[in-house]
């Protein structure tokens, strides 16, 4: 299935844009998605606290992603 990821913050720089289409197998979990992203973009690995929100809600690592889900990647920012 093809997922569209929407990025905020430094993740936009890391993945090279606001959105990213990525092909994963059916039944992929949030944990697996994070792993796939880390392999594709090694800098993601440093973001231990990258928040993944699915359908406007913080998603735990064991959540199974469905093809229609809206996936948002939100890293911490520190500016004030």
């Amino acid at each position: 299935m093809t997922l569209e990821l929407i990025a905020f913050g430094i993740v936009k720089d890391i993945i090279g844009g606001k959105t990213l289409k990525i092909v994963v197998k059916e039944g992929t979990t949030v944990k697996e998605l994070k792993y796939i992203l880390t392999k594709k973009f090694p800098k993601i690995e440093g973001l231990a606290s990258l928040m993944v929100a699915i359908n406007q809600e913080y998603a735990d690592l064991d959540i199974v992603i469905r093809p229609t889900d809206e996936i948002v990647l939100i890293p911490p920012v520190s500016g004030g």
């Binding site: 430094i10 973001l47 920012v77």
Partner: peptide, 8 residues
């Protein structure tokens, strides 16, 4: 956990 220094 915070990001490593320099990343963000």
């Amino acid at each position: 956990e915070p990001p490593p220094p320099g990343l963000v």
